[in-house]
């Protein structure tokens, strides 16, 4: 009787196959990340192992890949372009998204709060090419008129655009971080007679610090990797910026603008893929750090792993 019942029946095999298939799905994420690195590396390899000089790449502002007699591949100006735009974007986005997160998380209630969250979510949905279009055709004339600048496509323009783009995700992550602070902390502080604002300043913000750092890091990552908006709104001039009204060119925009006009396999082509590897490594590092902070631990402290439902209590 028992022996007869203890057969590996069809449902047992179906279950095994399903398990293997979903595991493959899970592993695919790793395969893709590794694949991105390998395939971009494969295209850029020729340059990295021959013409590439890390010193020139990081320290020279001369990006003249199409020069006939002496092409140079200094990415300093591009890095400076990306950094200046991202930096200005953070100046815009950090205070405003933190403020918005505090308002949504700590002050707004009920329907108002839900509405604001939905609006923030819709902000995040606007495609970057539309932002670029806004920078080009709305912000550009606006900056020219307001600041009496000769051209409106510059660090200021793309920084503001990028700040508005990065703000929704930063607001969402920051609000999550504030929400994760246990209510018992707030109640304990309120029981001692602290006002709402004192509770936020003295209790909630310090307790949510890691999440807020993560939100900022993700915002930086977003700004660093944004392509279309920066391509269209930054003026696209290889330039070490000295003022917000200077035109710059970002790493991402350089790839987007030049790849289409480059012969496959040429040194220039390989150099563009090398820029891609550089971008990949930097954003990977930023995202990794953000993840460490989201998990609530500075490196060294034990990580609080997200447990799957299958092992969590109901």
């Amino acid at each position: 009787m028992n022996a007869a019942a203890d057969r590996r029946d069809l449902s047992w095999w179906v279950d095994k196959v399903a398990q293997i298939l979903v595991l493959a799905g899970g592993l695919s994420a790793i395969v893709f990340i590794v694949g991105i690195f390998l395939f971009i590396g494969r295209e850029g390899a020729g340059f990295i192992f021959e013409g590439f000089s890390l010193r020139e790449f990081l320290l020279s502002p001369r990006w003249t890949p199409t020069s006939n007699h002496n092409p140079t591949f200094g990415a300093l100006a591009l890095i400076a372009g990306t950094a200046s735009v991202t930096g200005l974007a953070m100046v815009v986005a950090v205070p405003f998204s933190l403020g918005a997160a505090i308002y949504i998380g700590e002050f707004a209630t009920g329907r108002g709060r839900e509405t604001l969250k939905v609006l923030v979510e819709l902000l995040a949905a606007i495609p970057s090419v539309v932002w670029g279009f806004v920078g080009l055709s709305i912000m550009n004339p606006l900056i020219v008129r307001v600041f009496d600048a000769p051209v409106g496509l510059n660090v200021l323009n793309s920084g503001i655009i990028l700040g508005l783009m990065a703000a929704p995700i930063m607001t969402t992550i920051a609000e999550d971080a504030l929400k994760a602070v246990p209510d018992t902390y707030r109640e304990a502080a309120e029981a001692m007679g602290a006002t709402r604002w004192q509770v936020i300043l003295k209790v909630v913000l310090p307790a949510g610090r890691n999440g807020l750092v993560a939100a900022t890091l993700l915002g930086v990552g977003r700004g660093f990797g944004e392509t279309m908006a920066v391509l269209m709104a930054s003026g696209h001039a290889v330039n070490l910026p000295t003022s917000p009204f200077d035109a710059v060119r970002a790493l991402t925009a350089t790839i987007a603008a030049e790849l289409g006009e480059t012969a496959e396999g040429s040194e220039h082509w390989q150099a563009l893929f090398t820029l891609g590897i550089f971008l990949f490594l930097v954003t990977f590092t930023i995202n990794f750090l953000a993840d460490v902070f989201v998990r609530g631990g500075l490196p060294g402290r034990r990580r609080r792993g997200r447990r799957p439902v299958a092992s969590a209590n109901p």
Partner: peptide, 28 residues
């Protein structure tokens, strides 16, 4: 299915990075 182990953490990290890698890098 996933147990709380290194592989699961690696998969989660990979997902976060797929979302965080610049779009132009995906293009490359």
């Amino acid at each position: 299915y996933a147990p709380d182990n290194r592989l699961t953490r690696a998969i989660n990290l990979a997902i976060i990075n797929l979302a965080g890698v610049p779009s132009i890098v995906h293009a490359l």
